[in-house]
Design a protein around this nucleic acid. Structure first.
Length: 583
RNA sequence: GCGUUUGUAGCUCAGGGGAUAGAGCAACCGCCUCCUAAGCGGUAGGCCGCAGGUUCGAUUCCUGCCAAGCGCACCA
């Protein structure tokens, strides 16, 4: 069966009657808040200028013309004031949406638009020898979701975790380790031990400033490949990775490329020389900069007074290297919005260097977590470690399971899926740029617009489907949907009630929402659509008994349920959230 | 000070030129003999930060102001 996109189809008809470009008309199409008014609506105000008639007249004339040649899938086109309201033929619509979903299965909403295009996504990027803390949560979760979305749309995606594994702090750490450290204790305590050394260094350096010179000396030695220094540094990196690996495993995240600032150590001088060659490098207060005054930005620092390199220098080197290696169409950097200026600056420098691919560099910023006590600070020790956050989420979930569903098998596993799902969903539910007040109660809430609510709805749909199967049936849920819709007694006309129709509409719009999310780099568009689908399905569930004696009615409602289950799972998957079958 | 982001219900947030501005949480009132109550229904709750401007029409676009977050030279 041929599948139809109804907004495109409506705008096509409008284009045929007005002679205006279809894409533009499609953008004007609205979905009225109250579906009794219409399923889709087209306001005629803008046409009034072009056609030199009142919008009301245009609406009624157009509606009349459309009615005269109305295709089967369209139920009715009515003019109301300045609007043309379109009512779909519910049977045709139901048939179409359900076929689209069930035939595509886990691929529903995917596309080929990205074929042949390469996208790099850099995200997560924790700093070696420091805990993976709540500040890294946004980049990790948002980055991962964008990664998933672009893959789903057919792009060739390379995910990059770019560790902060180089810099002056390693000079300090090595100094501190050699003076006060114990191998056994560091092995045992991992990052916590390294942080302790770091703090100790600062305490001691306040009393004895020569320690700072010692630390700087180590940095220089390492730059020159000092064996002892490099060995200790490598060991610190490996220790740190133990914590990160545990976290990524629990978050179910892996990367195509693990890289770090240290990879570009030996390329720094070349970058400075290149900038000088292109006449971009200037001296200012002894440092080397690229002046960006013409672009209303402060200068971009390339080399320190002592010749050392800086964050922008490394990002420029990495970008050039990545273009040479991956030939990307786009390269996304998912980091907090506090780094917006930094990215604007170095990306402008790359543009000024004359690289045409500079336009593919994109910073994807997001809002930060705020705390009652003000900004989070390592010194005050009020950093929230992700491992603690994950543990807390899972513990709380287990409590709720014990309270609400004590007989649930596999409690620990479900608690892990639901607790971490709640955490991820909480970060993905609002537009990226919004700062969010950190609030345990809100993050671990399971009611309303939350991850657990969507997961619960998925589990509920699974439960219904399972109950409908005879004991000996070996169909899985995907096969079940197809079997249901292919049966001779399937009648989409039995799904023309308002509640079914709302469910179908939300599923119909799902692919468009994924594209929208990709275009805007906004995962929340998908998260919101999932909540809308869960809400609509729950309303349907309460209003209509699904497993009824009437065979065709039961079949129709089960088919709808199978489709909902599939779309919820796909959507949660894009957000990196598991969809438990039972919870 | 300059730049940037954000101001919508008590709280957290959608909507971003169009028909009566929507959800969730919290509050209050209902619904488990019935497919999962982590659910569903209902009540109450709004100068859409303020002031101008553009428009047939502004919560939405423009300008100014106010408030808050973030950033602004050798950290990353």
């Amino acid at each position: 069966m041929e599948t139809l996109n109804f907004t495109s189809a409506i705008s096509e008809i409008l284009a045929a009657h007005t002679g205006l470009p279809q894409a533009e008309l499609e953008r004007c199409l609205e979905t009225p808040a109250d579906s009794k008014v219409g399923h889709y609506a087209f306001p005629c105000f803008n046409l009034a200028k072009v056609l030199k008639k009142s919008p009301q007249v245009i609406a009624s004339e157009l509606a009349e013309k459309i009615e005269a040649g109305r295709p089967g899938w369209l139920g009715q086109a009515v003019a109301t004031n300045a609007y043309i309201n379109f009512f779909l033929n519910r049977t045709a619509f139901a048939n179409n949406v359900l076929y689209s979903v069930l035939e595509a299965g886990t691929e529903y909403g995917s596309s080929e638009e990205g074929f042949g295009k390469k996208i790099l996504v850099e995200y997560s990027s924790p700093n070696i020898a420091k805990h993976f803390h709540i500040g890294h949560l946004g980049t990790t979760i948002i980055g991962r979701t964008l990664d998933n979305i672009y893959r789903f749309l057919g792009y060739e995606v390379t995910s990059i975790n770019f560790f902060g594994d180089w810099g002056t702090q390693f000079g300090k750490l090595i100094t501190a380790y050699l003076k006060w450290g114990s191998k056994e204790e560091i092995e045992k305590t991992e990052i916590a031990g390294l942080v302790k050394l770091y703090v100790k260094f600062h305490e001691e350096a306040d009393k004895d400033p020569t320690l700072n010179d010692e630390a700087r000396a180590w940095v220089v030695k390492m730059q020159n490949g000092d064996e002892q220094g490099i060995a200790i540094w490598k060991w610190f990196c490996e220790l740190s990775m133990l914590e990160y690996d545990r976290i990524y495993e629990r978050l179910q995240i892996s990367f195509d490329v693990l890289s770090g600032e240290s990879h570009y150590n030996d390329k720094m001088d070349a970058i400075a020389q290149l900038l000088a060659q292109k006449g971009l490098l200037q001296e200012s207060d002894g440092a080397k900069i690229v002046d960006l005054e013409a672009y209303n930005m402060p200068p971009c620092l390339i080399l320190k007074r002592d010749g050392g390199t800086l964050y922008p220098t490394r990002d420029i080197a990495a970008a050039i290297d990545r273009y040479e290696r991956f030939d990307f169409d786009k390269s996304l950097y998912v980091t907090g919005n506090e780094q917006s200026l930094h990215f604007a600056q170095w990306m402008k420098v790359v543009e000024l260097m004359g690289y045409p691919w500079a336009s593919g560099l994109l910073h994807i910023p997001y809002g930060m977590y705020l705390f009652e006590s003000g900004k989070m600070s390592t010194r005050r020790g009020d950093v929230i470690k992700i491992e603690d956050l994950l543990d807390e989420a899972v513990t709380k979930t287990l409590e709720i399971i014990n309270e609400k569903n004590p007989d649930l098998p596999n409690k620990e596993r479900v608690a892990e899926q639901v607790g971490i799902g709640a955490l991820k969903f909480n970060k993905l539910y609002n537009s990226r740029m919004k700062d969010t007040m950190f609030d345990w109660d809100r993050i671990l809430s399971f009611d309303g617009e939350t991850g657990p609510y969507v997961q619960y709805t998925h589990a509920r749909a699974c439960s219904v489907l399972k109950k409908s199967l005879s004991a000996d049936s070996r169909l899985d849920f995907g096969e079940l949907g197809l079997a249901l819709i292919s049966g001779s007694t399937f009648d989409a006309g039995l799904l023309s009630d308002d509640e079914s129709f709302d469910v179908l509409r939300i599923m119909h719009d799902f692919p468009a929402k994924i594209k929208d999310a990709a275009e805007k780099y906004e995962p929340f568009i998908i998260a919101r659509q999932l909540v809308a689908l869960a809400q609509a399905y729950n309303i349907f569930y309460h209003k209509h008994q699904i497993i009824v004696d009437d065979e065709p009615v039961r079949r129709a409602r089960l088919t709808l349920t199978a489709a909902v289950k599939l779309v919820l799972k796909t959507g949660l998957g894009l957000l990196g959230i598991s969809a438990p079958v039972v919870m």
